[in-house]
Simulated scan of single mutants.
Amino acid sequence: MTVVMVEDLDPGSADAGVPAHFGDPMREQRLLETGVGLVDRSNREVIAVPGEERASWLHTLTTQHLSGLTAGQGSELLVLSPHGHVEQHAFVTEDGTTAWLDTEPGAGAGLLKYLEMMRFFTRVEPRDASAELAVLSLVGPAAADLVPGLADPRIGAVPGPKFAAGSVPSSPTSLYSVREFEGGLARRVPLGVDLLVPRESKDAVITKLGVARAGLWAFEAVRVARRIPRLGWETDHRTIPAEVELTAPAVHLDKGCYRGQETVARVHNMGRPPRRLVLLHLDGVATDHPPARGTAVELDGRAIGFVGTAVRHHELGMVALAVLKRNVPDDARLTVGESAAAIDAG
């Protein structure tokens, strides 16, 4: 089997350490969209939060309603700046003794630093557990068949502006079923099933599952097509949750005070965040290389946003997730580097 690592293609990539593809990225994409494939995402960083007060403590520090989180449940959370900008995004998986937070490569140290700073006298013991657990993802419509006993993921609807107090259920806005799996945990998520397995047994788990492999390139193409944002790719230093569609899975709008809550509430009640996440179609005439992360999106020669993740999709062609000023019309004729670009309004 041909294995091409991310760092072989881009030595400076934040995604170094996992396979980019196994010789045929387009076939791997089709596999993830029609069947099931296994993607090594063990470059994700993991923070463990044991301690009897972990649920109530995380509830007060983050955007998610976690005070009642119990064994066998998972969700998503954000840590915001005092001005409501997204600083951290993590998935949380609860096993009854520990809340496991997995986040983007390079983001774990910042998340752990914040948690340690906010411990005070709370009975919690956060630590870096990246050397303990590795993340593998079973992606595709058949993923749940390989790990029976997991309920479908549930993501609640975002209430309208000026909703009535008490009308939002007092539970996580996203709820992901969790069960034990091969000495670790399995978590049902919208793209399939994430496996948090002991790092030393990662290769043994992959062999035992016997599932066809797919690289991170294929995973990213599926993610982009589904318009799922990624911390550090579709976010910058001034991103607020509503701009990149993180409100539904990660923000409880009626749970009380947390850092940055005033901005979240004000933007939600006004109903007009300054920017929005869009899917762009790139013509690929001048160049067949997807633009780099951070490339400016321009309208009439003026920058009106930036590219987050650009990929070559097996059906859509060259596409990108981008963050644009909200007032840019859907039919605007945009440019990204040498490519013409159009917003997919679907």
Rank of each mutant, 00 (worst) to 15 (best):
V224T: 10
L31V: 05
E53D: 15
I304N: 07
V39L: 03
A322L: 14
N327T: 14
E182C: 09
N327V: 13
V36E: 08
L80D: 01
A221W: 02
E234D: 06
F306W: 15
C257T: 03
D128C: 05
A14T: 10
V49H: 10
L80T: 05
I206H: 03
T335M: 06
P82L: 08
E245Q: 13
S13C: 05
A310V: 02
I47A: 13
P229C: 06
Y114K: 02
L191C: 03
F306D: 02
D254T: 12
V336F: 01
F306E: 03
V211P: 00
R123Q: 06
A142D: 14
I304R: 13
R259P: 00
A142Q: 12
T247D: 08
L196M: 11
G184M: 06
L101F: 05
D194T: 10
A242N: 04
G110M: 02
S167M: 03
A345M: 04
L334G: 04
R154M: 08
V147Y: 03
T335D: 14
L32V: 02
A292K: 14
L77H: 07
E338I: 05
D300G: 02
E104W: 07
K162Q: 13
E94K: 12
E243M: 13
A265V: 12
E94V: 12
A221S: 13
D128G: 08
D330N: 00
L195I: 04
R27E: 05
I343H: 10
A248Q: 08
G284R: 15
A144V: 12
G140I: 03
P273M: 00
A292H: 10
R326C: 11
D102C: 01
R188A: 02
S130W: 03
T239L: 02
G160E: 10
A14M: 12
S56G: 11
E45H: 11
A221R: 07
L195N: 08
P50S: 00
S56Y: 00
I155H: 03
A310E: 00
T295V: 10
V328R: 04
A322K: 13
M5F: 08
V211G: 00
D283L: 08
R27Y: 01
A131M: 01
V311L: 09
R333W: 06
I228S: 01
D40N: 08
G156H: 00
M117W: 14
R227W: 08
L209I: 04
G72P: 15
E116C: 15
G96Q: 13
L101V: 12
P273C: 01
A129N: 07
F163E: 02
G337L: 12
M118Y: 09
D203W: 11
T97H: 15
D331K: 15
A151Q: 12
P273Q: 01
P82T: 13
R272N: 13
A286P: 14
G17I: 02
V323R: 04
A322D: 11
I47F: 14
L115I: 06
A99C: 09
R276P: 09
A14K: 12
S42K: 04
G160P: 05
F91K: 11
A129E: 08
V36M: 10
E76P: 07
